[in-house]
């Protein structure tokens, strides 16, 4: 009966809530992503319902559920919590079982996690108090430029003459953006400059090992960031099929490993 069991991972992030449902073969069979909003519990419940529908399964098949992310304590159906650091590591190692450096760009924080060839975490770092270089930076800039967030990636790809922004600070960067608009710079060149600012903040955080994996909602929706990062560090970057879901998948994997019946089987 083991194949009927499902495991749920829920990643309640500062910006989006992600739910992943996996089966005993570690296959992703359902998922959902929604804005976290102000009621984390309700959002997680709604995501679970949607993900189970995708999996074509009922709640009775859930053999374990673990939550992660900022709102990890607010998930009604989770039996345990893990930090998002551990879950991202777990989720990424499933797809790339080798020594890797994971760069996760989230809504309010960035993480750099290093794993050895056994998936053992050797170090991790989160951005410091400031949210420069995270999704929040792009979210702040989008209304300033009057560009929907989802259009940024396409615009950045069109740039021929990137505008470099000097400031660490999101607010001061916005001032620089206004100055560039005043000086007649093209919007696509400014947007590429914003992307460049994001990846600069990340490479300042830590050194990278040979194999680099990029994940997170910002990467999911702005794949050009990966291309830019590849150009900057001079090598190919690995991206899982669902980069926004790796934390949730990792949490589901922890739930699977914690399942006594599965362990004994």
């Amino acid at each position: 009966m083991n194949q009927d069991k499902l495991f749920v991972g829920t990643d309640v992030g500062a910006s989006r809530t992600k739910v992943a449902v996996i089966d005993t073969a570690r296959k992703l069979v359902g998922y959902a992503v929604r804005k976290s909003g102000t009621n984390f519990t309700a959002t997680a419940d709604a995501c679970l319902k949607e993900a189970l529908e995708m999996a074509g399964a009922g709640k009775e098949r859930i053999a374990g559920a673990i939550s992660t992310g900022y709102g990890r304590k607010n998930v009604s159906y989770a039996q345990q919590t893990r930090t998002e650091i551990g879950c991202h590591a777990k989720g990424c190692f499933l797809y790339f079982p080798m020594a890797i450096t994971i760069i996760d760009i989230g809504g309010q924080d960035n993480k750099i996690i290093k794993l050895d060839e056994n998936g053992q975490r050797t170090s991790f770092k989160m951005n410091r108090k400031c949210a420069a270089g995270t999704g929040a930076f792009l979210e702040e800039m989008s209304p300033r430029l009057d560009i929907p967030l989802e259009d940024m990636d396409g615009l950045a790809r069109k740039s021929k003459d990137m505008v470099k922004l000097g400031s660490f600070c999101t607010v001061f960067s916005a001032t620089e953006v206004l100055e560039n608009i005043r000086n007649g710079k093209k919007v696509e060149d400014i947007v590429k400059g914003l992307f460049y600012s994001v990846i600069r903040r990340i490479i300042e955080m830590d050194s990278f090992t040979e194999n680099v994996v990029m994940t997170g909602g910002v990467v999911e929706h702005n794949r050009y960031l990966v291309t830019m990062m590849e150009e900057l560090i001079g090598r190919k970057i690995l991206v899982p099929e669902h980069p926004q879901l790796t934390g949730a998948i990792g949490a589901a994997l922890y739930a699977l490993e914690a399942d006594a019946v599965y362990r004994d089987a």
Binding site: I85, G86, F124, M126
Partner: peptide, 18 residues
């Protein structure tokens, strides 16, 4: 004002997991 409790908590918990 220079402290983010949530960041500290996540970092410490992740360190203990490690």
């Amino acid at each position: 004002r220079l402290i983010s409790d949530e960041q500290t908590k996540t970092n410490v918990e992740a360190f203990i997991e490690q």
